[in-house]
Simulated scan of single mutants.
Amino acid sequence: MATTYKAARAHGPAVPPGVGDGQALKAASVVFDLGAALVVNDVIEGPTLQRGSTVLDVILVATDLDTGGSPAIALDVGPTSNPDAFIDGSTVGQAGGVARGASAPVTLTGNEPINVTVATGPATGATTGKISLTVLFLPPNS
């Protein structure tokens, strides 16, 4: 059964304030430590951004999340309204590594989190590991 997990906020509150130069590039990061194996459709809730924020890039870092001989896990990254908007079917969790977003900038139409979704479940899910997500964005007033 799929579960929604809350990742620990590495930096800032749920909706990052526009402190300092309101037009400058911002970064919001979360870290999730596995406590059980992930399954298909699990969601790791990432940072919530304000309506009007423009997401420029995402950086997904994962340890080996699939310990099977033929790993299968695939991860998507995107807002709740479009779960694979930034990363679609990344295999970064099959051996560990880094994946970057490959889409054009997207301006959010509502306050929503940028999530990691398990698009394909692991062959043999690791019960320990880490997933980190960093979202680079321009705030609404830029």
Rank of each mutant, 00 (worst) to 15 (best):
A2Q: 01
A2T: 03
A2P: 03
A2L: 01
A2W: 03
T3Q: 12
T4Q: 08
Y5F: 14
Y5A: 06
Y5S: 08
Y5V: 10
K6A: 15
K6M: 14
K6Y: 15
A7V: 02
A8K: 12
R9H: 14
A10P: 05
H11G: 15
H11D: 14
G12C: 10
G12S: 13
A14P: 12
V15L: 13
V15P: 07
V15F: 08
P16Y: 09
P16V: 06
P16T: 09
G18T: 10
G18D: 07
V19I: 15
V19K: 12
A27H: 07
A28Q: 00
A28I: 01
S29G: 05
V31D: 02
D33R: 04
L34C: 02
A36H: 06
A37W: 05
V40H: 05
N41Y: 08
D42L: 04
E45M: 03
E45F: 07
E45Q: 04
P47R: 03
P47D: 01
P47W: 02
T48L: 05
R51D: 08
R51F: 04
G52F: 06
S53Y: 02
T54H: 09
L56R: 01
I59F: 08
V61P: 00
D64N: 10
L65D: 10
D66L: 11
D66C: 12
T67R: 14
G68Q: 09
G69F: 14
G69E: 15
P71V: 13
P71C: 11
A72D: 13
L75V: 06
L75M: 08
D76N: 13
D76C: 08
G78E: 08
P79A: 10
P79K: 09
N82I: 13
P83K: 14
A85D: 09
F86C: 01
I87R: 02
G89E: 13
G89W: 11
G89F: 11
S90Y: 01
T91S: 14
V92N: 04
G93Y: 03
Q94I: 15
G96T: 00
A99G: 03
A99H: 01
R100C: 01
A102G: 06
A102V: 05
A102K: 02
S103H: 05
S103V: 03
L108N: 13
G110A: 15
N111L: 11
N111I: 13
E112Q: 12
P113Y: 14
I114P: 09
I114M: 07
N115L: 12
N115K: 13
N115W: 12
V116L: 06
V116M: 05
A119P: 09
A119F: 11
A119E: 11
T120L: 13
G121C: 02
G121Q: 05
G121M: 04
G121L: 04
P122L: 14
A123Q: 14
T124W: 14
G125S: 10
A126D: 02
A126C: 01
T127Y: 06
T127V: 09
T127D: 07
G129H: 00
G129R: 01
G129T: 02
K130Y: 00
S132E: 08
S132A: 08
L133Y: 05
L133M: 03
T134K: 00
V135H: 06
V135G: 05
V135N: 07
L136Q: 01
F137D: 03
F137R: 02
F137T: 03
F137W: 05
L138C: 07
L138K: 08
L138I: 11
P139G: 10
